[in-house]
Design a protein around this nucleic acid. Structure first.
Lengths: 256, 256
DNA sequence: TGCGTAAATTGGTAAGACAGAATGTACAGC
DNA sequence: GCTGTACATTCTGTCTTACCAATTTACGCA
């Protein structure tokens, strides 16, 4: 299953999806705890945990005895430009993290290499079932590299890119639609980055990082295309239905 | 009491206090749920809720079967880190704006090239007397390039770098100490970037951008060195004066 | 219109079964 | 006697079921 160790996290993710997708719009009320518990097939305390996490993330406000209400997302607080597309973000990450990897290759310490290896193992171990640990290991991997550049400004910029990735609803959704099917490929790509860093080869490190993001970008593009095809098909069916309806009511004149 | 509607919040606050006060240092482990429940006089689910909120706030990491561990608090992602040095910033700008220039070289429009030329002229005209217009033209030049990448994320990152440059006191001071003496060199460097962009040559554009920042970095280093020498001299004078003062009061016994 | 009760909803607790991780212990082999 | 491995125990977080309390909201009735 989508089990990731702790149950409430899986519930949390599903709820965030529902909120992001507009199922529960800002200002609206979530279903009661008991109903959610039944719907997700978990107990009520677990739902409560997910709601509390949601509350801590400022996505929701709980009013005792009344219900839990969706807050409007305030992107202005951390100024994420909502018009930034997943493609732009990934391209920017490719360029910037590519340079970071090259920089890190000539600066990285043995201790940091060890931590990279740990993260790599975590990624490989959990790549089968749980996404959470795998995701976390992924993030740690990249963070260690940015730290290894010994440039706090560069590290801060990269942190910011991850923040945008995790907090822009549009981008979150795009990633969720592709992050299920990968697995060994991702581990292999990170392995190649690690190898280049271990050899202290800046050029190869940059190249491996670019390759990693290039694949990600291609997946995003493919997912977007199939989504658009799906959308087009849906519209086609819709208009066909409308046409047939028009035909039934038999209005020979008006095309509308 | 400290009750604020929901019990877990009061527990959460107490725990945060304990963590902040150093009672539970980063890397350390919190007491087990059952013990905390007894200590705070609440039930275990309530403790769990508080821990989950703590986890959502990135203050704590839960390891199943082992315990809950305190994370080191990261400085705010979006505040300017005051420990970032002018060198780090300039290095980061070199890498990132270098890639931006390469990207821009293959995407830039004729209209943007025109605006670059205008900025270049402004820079050249004013390079003799007024620094203000020249500074502004410089910033515009770089902004047009980041815009030409057609990547809003990359442009936002570069904007952020300029913001740090303009708003970190330490970095502002460092720049002011070197920005007076340049002149034709800077214009010439920007001219070379412009030429590469006009030829639509990514590699040369990157190279020219790197050269620009490399010179800036060297100047910063030189200024820093001379500043440190100055500082050392000042201290030498100071200690010499103190020595002579000690000598004047003529205390043969105590070394203080 | 105003008030009071009932329904709906979240808040909190208790007790226990379960699973993973750490720890201690005993036994086998050297 | 010493060491290392295998097993058992204990510790710890995970999740459930069941129950009652407190608060808000809705509705009916006067």
């Amino acid at each position: 299953m989508a089990s990731e160790g702790r149950l409430y996290r899986s519930v949390l993710n599903k709820m965030r999806e529902l909120i992001d997708s507009g199922e529960y719009p800002p200002g609206g009320r979530l279903p009661p705890e008991r109903e959610l518990a039944e719907r997700f097939g978990v107990s009520r305390p677990t739902i409560r945990e997910a709601i509390i996490a949601l509350e801590a993330l400022d996505q929701v406000r709980v009013k005792t005895g009344s219900g839990v209400y969706v807050l409007e997302t305030k992107p202005g607080l951390h100024d994420i430009d909502p018009t930034v597309s997943p493609f732009e973000l990934t391209e920017a990450r490719a360029l910037i993290e590519g340079e970071a990897a090259a920089q890190a290759a000539s600066m990285i310490t043995d201790e940091q290499l060890e931590r990279l290896e740990t993260a790599l193992n975590d990624m490989a171990e959990e790549s089968v079932d749980g996404h959470l640990t795998s995701e976390l290991a992924d993030q740690q991997f990249h963070q260690i590299i940015s730290e290894a550049t010994q440039n706090k400004m560069l590290a801060a910029v990269i942190d910011n890119l991850w923040y945008v990735r995790d907090n822009s609803p549009k981008i979150r959704r795009a990633h969720q639609s592709i992050c299920e099917t990968d697995g060994r490929t991702r581990v292999k790509e990170h392995q190649e980055i690690y190898d280049a860093l271990k050899r202290r080869d800046p050029s190869e490190a940059r190249k491996a990082m670019h390759a990693h993001f290039a694949r990600l970008l291609n997946k995003l593009i493919a997912a977007n295309e199939s989504e658009q095809i799906e959308e087009a098909r849906r519209r086609a069916v819709e208009s066909r239905q409308r046409f047939s309806l028009d035909h039934l009511v038999a209005q020979p004149q008006s095309t509308r």
